[in-house]
Write a protein that binds this DNA or RNA. Sequence first.
DNA 1: ATTATCTATAGATCTATAGATAATGC
DNA 2: ATTATCTATAGATCTATAGATAATGC
Lengths: 244, 244
Amino acid sequence: MTPKKPERPARPAPPEAANGTSKLGRPRASGAVRDDNPRQAILVAAAELFSRSGYAGTSTRAIAEQVGLRQPSMFHYFRTKEDLLAELLENLITPTTGLLDGLEDLDAAPAAKLYALTFGDVLNMASSDTNMTTLQFLNDARTERFDTFWALRTQLFDGYAQLISQGLKSAAFACRDETIARSVVFGIADSVALWEDADSFEPHEISTEVADAVLLFLLADKAALETVRTEAMALIRAIRKEQS
Amino acid sequence: MTPKKPERPARPAPPEAANGTSKLGRPRASGAVRDDNPRQAILVAAAELFSRSGYAGTSTRAIAEQVGLRQPSMFHYFRTKEDLLAELLENLITPTTGLLDGLEDLDAAPAAKLYALTFGDVLNMASSDTNMTTLQFLNDARTERFDTFWALRTQLFDGYAQLISQGLKSAAFACRDETIARSVVFGIADSVALWEDADSFEPHEISTEVADAVLLFLLADKAALETVRTEAMALIRAIRKEQS
DNA sequence: ATTATCTATAGATCTATAGATAATGC
DNA sequence: ATTATCTATAGATCTATAGATAATGC
């Protein structure tokens, strides 16, 4: 006898209270807002709750009820809670591995490509209003179910590593030790996950500053930053155009 | 009927199996290693488990049993699980706020002080083999019980902010926007929390690289880095001497 | 009497399954 | 027949308390 929380929906709100706009299936009991793509709504709710309360600290009940469903109804869309986390992590990283692929086809200096990659990576994270990044380090995310995610993550790390390596070869970059420089750069790129006030700034502004920080760390000639940034923004525009 | 895990200590290991070296109280049932400072051992075990499995994902049973105690015995040392987390977070941050206090008494350029602060901050995190940093963002850590921790955290952020402000005033630093530069710097300093391979490098080496990155981001004259680093290391030595 | 442990257990969860029910489509 | 929901519930946890027990100290 310790936990409190005497709440509980008390009376399940009679079935006639159905208000969902879905055309198929039994009407929903409760009436939480949801513009009727339940699967997507569940993902959004889960991302929000996971990033605020952690993975284990978020119950499937909390997720379901945030979108106006009963707890077991969530399992119609996701086989397990783990599946939810895996899909969210994959969704978070794919725009950035996509950017990496786009950059490979373009001809540009490694410095400009690295700037563009960092910029896009940070922009992607800063544009989401949830913060899933730290969840990937949990033991929960080390099972087979996350193999796809981890393959993408490795691909991204290798992308950063390769650009750094090329920049060093061309003497555009300089550093004391390449292996540690990789981790510093990857860490800085992800560091927006540790900002508590990320939403008081424009994502574009955050991305510029963080990409600047990465390049200032690596560039042999720090005065080249402005040029590199300009080149990088051109690359970003080129890829956006291509994809639309 | 879903979870598995058929284990359980089965038979509680008869009381005669006592092996603890403690002088007082009833002998322990199980025999997990522990060089008998149970309170400290619990903190170490909790830090390890929290950082691997998250706060909610770590049971008090797992913590207790890792140090060879039964689950309820843990509550002899910590009133609640929350108390454990609060103490761990405070222990993590106090060395760094201590360093900040030490720096205030010394006479040096803001750039050198900022380097020293970052270096010490990162060294402290990188020297621990657990990673508690990301846990502070959980909702669980927003209750009153964490007021002390949050006051220290604010003090640390303000310390960084003040040094940045002084450096800008003396024109040693340059940036586009001061408020965002603060967050960038604070983020970079903490970014080692996102390293997956932090233990493949020397903490001293990591700290040097990360502090370099911070200063390269802020310094108006990037060529001043080496001098700043040398000054900073002298400050660190001075504070260490004073404290011993 | 104090300290450190233990066993037993209350009461509140939690995830996932089973199977009913309602709406629609064929 | 299919889809989307619901209620009910199994069985496994989880945190914390109650109160017994053993060792030591006064």
